[in-house]
Simulated scan of single mutants.
Amino acid sequence: MTENAIEIAPDSALIVIDVQKGFDDSSFWGPRDNPAAEGNIAALMDAWEESGRPLVLVRHASLRPGSVLAADSPGHAFKDVVAERAGRESLLVTKTVNSSFYGTPDLGEWLTAQGIRQLVVVGIQTNMCVETTARMAGNLGYEVLVPLDATHTFDLTGPGGLTLTAAQLAAATAVNLHGGGFARVVTTAELLTAAEAS
């Protein structure tokens, strides 16, 4: 193995975050990036199932009035790409905040009980729930892999009217996670090859 080779543990957990229909509402969210995200997520879910590795699905139940991700909204449902594979998961977590570690049931407790130390984090949004979960996992001592091409996000406006595109935000997430030592940023293809090899 080379120094940079990816090794996928036999019990590596794939954490699929918030791939929900509400994120298809462009009038609510605005422009997005990476139209290949859902296909890459599906490929990883299939690879994890085929190899018998654990799959964790995370779903956001927004408490904000009028949110397209509210529990009583049609947008709360998983997108078809995940819904078609639902029922195969080892754990289903519901959360109301960005981090998947603050949900029900408790993700950290479950991972500890299973002895899992490696996580692959994918889903929506790159710079929100994916990045927050990956940062927290890194702080908790997990080995974290983030295939950025299996995530997507939306343009966002911040202080003073500064707007960053989804692509700019995704690039910032990659630098934050990888450069900051929280996670290793990789590609879906690299993970699929590594998962098959191991």
Results as ranks from 00 to 15, higher is better:
Asn176Phe: 02
Thr165Gln: 13
Met128His: 13
Gly30Val: 13
Val16Gln: 07
Asn34Tyr: 02
Lys79Asp: 08
Tyr142Gln: 00
Ala36Phe: 05
Thr163Glu: 13
Val56Ala: 05
Glu50Thr: 13
Ala195Arg: 10
Ser67Glu: 06
Thr132Cys: 11
Arg88Gln: 13
Ala171Met: 08
Glu84Asn: 14
Pro74Ile: 13
Ser100Ile: 01
Gly179Pro: 11
Gln125Asp: 13
Val56Arg: 04
Ala9Lys: 12
His178Arg: 09
Ala86Trp: 04
His60Lys: 02
Glu49Arg: 12
Ala172Glu: 02
Pro105Ala: 11
Ala174Arg: 10
Ala134Glu: 12
Val16Trp: 04
Leu192Thr: 12
Asn98Ile: 02
Val68Trp: 01
Leu57Ile: 01
Gly115Arg: 08
Ser67Asn: 01
Ala194Met: 07
Pro147Ala: 02
Gly180Arg: 04
Thr153Ala: 13
Val81Glu: 15
Asp155Ala: 12
Val130Arg: 07
Glu143Ala: 09
Ser73Trp: 09
Ser26Arg: 15
His76Phe: 15
Ile17Gln: 09
Thr187Tyr: 03
Ile41Gly: 04
Ala36Leu: 13
Phe154Asp: 02
Leu191Glu: 03
Thr126Val: 08
Ser100Trp: 00
Asp18Gly: 00
Ile17Glu: 06
Val58Glu: 01
Ile15Arg: 06
Thr132Ser: 15
Gly115Thr: 10
Ile124Thr: 12
Asn4Thr: 15
Ala61Ile: 01
Ile124Ala: 11
Leu57Glu: 02
Ala172Pro: 00
Ala197Arg: 13
Leu119Arg: 06
Asp11Gly: 11
Leu162Ile: 12
Ala61Cys: 06
Asp106Met: 03
Val185Arg: 03
Asn139Pro: 05
Met128Cys: 14
Ile6Met: 11
Ala174Asn: 02
Ala170Glu: 12
Leu55Asn: 03
Ala83Val: 06
Val146Gly: 06
Arg85Phe: 10
Ser67Gly: 14
Thr96Asp: 04
Met45Leu: 15
Gln125Tyr: 05
Arg64Cys: 05
Arg117Val: 11
Lys79Pro: 00
Glu143Phe: 03
Pro105Ser: 10
Leu191Ser: 04
Asn176Trp: 02
Val186Met: 02
Gly141Lys: 10
Gly180Leu: 05
Gly180Met: 05
Thr94Lys: 12
Asp24Val: 03
Asn127Phe: 11
Leu69Trp: 06
Ala13Ile: 10
Val175His: 08
Arg59Met: 05
Ala189Phe: 01
Ala167Pro: 00
Ser99Gly: 11
Arg53Pro: 02
Gln114Pro: 06
Leu111Thr: 00
Asp18Tyr: 00
Gly103Asn: 08
Ala171His: 07
Arg117Ala: 12
Gly115Ala: 09
Ser198Met: 05
Asn40Tyr: 07
Leu14Cys: 04
Arg53Glu: 04
Gly52Lys: 03
Lys95Ser: 07
Pro54Glu: 02
Leu119Glu: 03
Ala167Asn: 12
Asp149Gly: 08
Gly108Ala: 15
His60Cys: 03
Ala77Met: 09
Ser99Ile: 05
Glu190Asn: 10
Val19Trp: 01
Arg184His: 10
Ile124Met: 13
Asp11Ala: 10
Val56Tyr: 06
Lys95Cys: 08
Phe78Glu: 15
